[in-house]
C-alpha cells in the first residue's frame, strides 16, 4: 500500500502540478501563435517576470495574506497579473508590433521574441539577483498530510497549500477561458481571428483589440503559472529555456491554436515527465518479494538529470507521427 501512496505522491500529484503549469503556459503560447502567428520564445521569461512582480508586491505588503487566510503571494497574484499584462502589451507595442507592421517573416518575430526574452532575463536578474527566492515572505507554506483509511498505508499523501491553490486556479482559469471563447463577443472574435485573420478584418473585427486581449490572457496565465510554480518550489530566475521546451511540446501535442489542446498537451507532457523519472522498482517491490525476483534498485525510464529529454522526444514523436497534434491544430 505504501508503494501506491508513494506513486500517488510522486506521479499523480507531481504530474498534475507540473501539468497544470505547462497547461497554463501552453495556452498562452498557443493563443499567441494562433493570433500573431509566431512561436513566442519569451514565454518562459514572461512567467518568471510575472512571478517576480508577485514577489515584489508580496514584499511590499507582507501582511496582506493574513486577512484572508491565504498565502500573501496568492493574494497579490491578481495584481501582478494586471501589471504583467500591461507589460506584455507594452512589449508587444515596442518590439513586436513594428515588425508585424513591416510584414516580416515569422522567423524574424521568433528572433525578436528571443531578444525580448534576454531583456526580461537581464532586467529581472539586475533587480532581483541571480539566486533563488522564496515567495513566502511573512508566512509559511502549509503542508497537508492526508492519512489513508487502510491499515497497510502508513505513509501519508502529501499535498501542499500552493498545490491545492494551483489546481483550483487551473480549473477556474480553464473554465473561464472556455466561457470567454465560446460565449463572449470578444472571445468569439479571437477565435475568428485565429481561424481566418483576413476575414476577421473584413468582418469589421478590430484586430488590435484582439491582439491586446491575447496578450492580457497570455500575461495573466503566465503570471499565475510562474507564481504558483514558485510558491510550490522556489522562485528561480533561470527558468526560461528549461520550461520553454515542455510548454512548446505541450502546445504542439495538443494541436497548435487549440486552447483545450494546450491543456491536454500540458498534462500529457507533465505526466510523461513524472512517469518517466519515476522509479518503477518501488512499485514493483511487493511483487518482487512475492515472486522472489531480483530487480535492480532503480528502474526509472529516464534518469532525473535527463528529464528535459522527455518533452523533446514527445515533440519529435508528435512531429513525426501527427504534426497537427491531438486536436488537429494548424501546422506551424
Amino acid at each position: 500500500m505504501n508503494e501506491l501512496v508513494f506513486f500517488i505522491n510522486k506521479v499523480l500529484i507531481s504530474g498534475a502540478v507540473i501539468g497544470s503549469i505547462y497547461a497554463m503556459g501552453a495556452i498562452g503560447v498557443t493563443l499567441i501563435f494562433s493570433i500573431l502567428r509566431f512561436a513566442h520564445f519569451a514565454h518562459g521569461d514572461l512567467m518568471t517576470t510575472g512571478a517576480f512582480v508577485t514577489l515584489f508586491l508580496t514584499a511590499m505588503f507582507p501582511e496582506a495574506g493574513h486577512a484572508v487566510g491565504l498565502p500573501t503571494a496568492f493574494v497579490m497574484m491578481p495584481f501582478a497579473m494586471v501589471i504583467t499584462s500591461f507589460l506584455a502589451i507594452g512589449l508587444d507595442k515596442a518590439f513586436y508590433k513594428p515588425l508585424r507592421e513591416a510584414n516580416v517573416k515569422p522567423v524574424v518575430m521568433v528572433m525578436a521574441s528571443i531578444g525580448v526574452t534576454l531583456m526580461l532575463q537581464g532586467v529581472v536578474r539586475i533587480f532581483f539577483g541571480t539566486s533563488s527566492r522564496n515567495l513566502f515572505v511573512d508566512d509559511r507554506k502549509e503542508i497537508f498530510r492526508l492519512e489513508l483509511p487502510w491499515e497497510l498505508a502508513s505513509r501519508k499523501i502529501i499535498i501542499t497549500e500552493p498545490q491545492v491553490l494551483l489546481f483550483v486556479f487551473t480549473i477556474v482559469a480553464v473554465v473561464a477561458l472556455h466561457y470567454f471563447l465560446t460565449r463572449s463577443r470578444l472571445g468569439k472574435a479571437m477565435r475568428a481571428t485565429s481561424d481566418n485573420a483576413d476575414l476577421a478584418r473584413i468582418s469589421g473585427i478590430n484586430t488590435k483589440t484582439v491582439v491586446t486581449v491575447t496578450w492580457v490572457i497570455a500575461g495573466c496565465l503566465a503570471t499565475a503559472a510562474g507564481t504558483l510554480l514558485s510558491l510550490d518550489v522556489a522562485l528561480k530566475p533561470d527558468l526560461s529555456f528549461q520550461i520553454l521546451l515542455p510548454i512548446f511540446a505541450a502546445a504542439i501535442v495538443g494541436g497548435v491554436g487549440h486552447p483545450y489542446g494546450a491543456v491536454i498537451g500540458g498534462f500529457v507532457v507533465g505526466f510523461a515527465e513524472t512517469l518517466a523519472v519515476f522509479n518503477w522498482a518501488i512499485l514493483l517491490r511487493p511483487l518482487e518479494k512475492a515472486y522472489e525476483w531480483d530487480l535492480p534498485s532503480n528502474l526509472a525510464l529516464v534518469p532525473t538529470e535527463y528529464k528535459i529529454t522527455v518533452p523533446f522526444f514527445i515533440l519529435i514523436a508528435i512531429l513525426v507521427l501527427k504534426p497537427t497534434g491531438i486536436l488537429k491544430g494548424q501546422v506551424l
Partner: peptide, 15 residues
C-alpha cells in the same frame, strides 16, 4: 515543417 519548429527542436537538442 514551418521554421518555428526547427527553432524549438534545435533549442531542445542543445539542452
Amino acid at each position: 515543417l514551418r521554421s518555428d519548429y526547427l527553432a524549438i527542436a534545435t533549442l531542445g537538442i542543445s539542452e
